[in-house]
Design a protein around this nucleic acid. Structure first.
Length: 216
DNA sequence: CTAGTGATTCCCT
DNA sequence: GGGAATCACTAGC
């Protein structure tokens, strides 16, 4: 039988830990995107850890800039970046504050609001592809730079937060797999800091970083 | 299924 | 200037 997911919000202390502890612990958690048309809820199935220190793959590796500013702030906030001229990807900032570590949310299973997600992901042939990949995930949830810096652990009764993280059903450690990060080039590729749920159909296919040739 | 490639814009060097 | 934490599409097996 399937246990009902726990909809208790994750406390900020959850994120105020080393990123390599937080990343695998995020699998099976729920990400709730509140939109005017209703909520879209995702069960996280694939993530990647990025350490702000000594990690050439991290956007924070070369210091603080306007783009990555949020990563240097408090844990539990959302860092959204724009890449490849077209796409957005989202991370959750981890502790301690100032270390600028974060977890890239790479894939998930839409468990609520699939009708809303489908409207933004017209090319998806199956629901399992709605959030199969970091840019698809952000597209399905209507996440862009406007949500950069959102507090996913906000507790106030008053304001609806556009993004929240709930306890969900954590994945048993023997169901967690890990391997090289996708799309990371150079020295940053050596770390096996991609984590996913074993045999889950919503996990994105592994792609080694492709070196691009100049076009004329 | 896999491999190859064009798209398109922001940001930092 | 040139690369980027990617995707969609195509060809071919």
């Amino acid at each position: 039988m399937i246990a009902t997911p726990d909809r208790t919000p994750l406390p900020r202390a959850f994120f105020d830990r080393p990123v390599l502890e937080v990343a695998p612990d995020l699998l099976g958690r729920l990400l709730v995107r509140t939109t005017p048309e209703g909520p879209i809820t995702l069960r996280l199935t694939e993530v990647e850890a990025y350490d702000g220190q000594n990690d050439p793959g991290s956007h924070a590796y070369r210091g603080r800039t306007p783009r990555n500013d949020v990563m240097f702030g408090p844990p539990g906030h959302v860092y959204v970046y724009f890449t490849y001229g077209m796409w957005h990807c989202m991370n959750l900032v981890c502790g301690p504050e100032g270390r600028a570590s974060g977890v890239l949310l790479r894939a998930g299973e839409v468990i609520e609001g699939a009708d809303l997600a489908r409207k933004r992901r017209l090319s998806a042939r199956h629901d399992k592809e709605l959030a199969k990949g970091p840019a698809r995930l952000a597209t399905a949830l209507d996440v862009d730079r406007a949500l950069d810096g959102t507090d996913a652990c906000a507790t106030g009764e008053g304001g609806e937060t556009p993004l929240r993280i709930l306890t969900g059903t954590p994945v048993r450690s023997d169901q967690v797999r890990n391997g090289p990060r996708t799309g990371v080039s150079g020295d940053g590729a050596v770390h096996p800091w991609r984590y996913w749920v074993a045999d889950d159909p919503t996990v994105s296919p592994y792609r080694a970083h492709a070196a691009r040739r100049r076009s004329s």
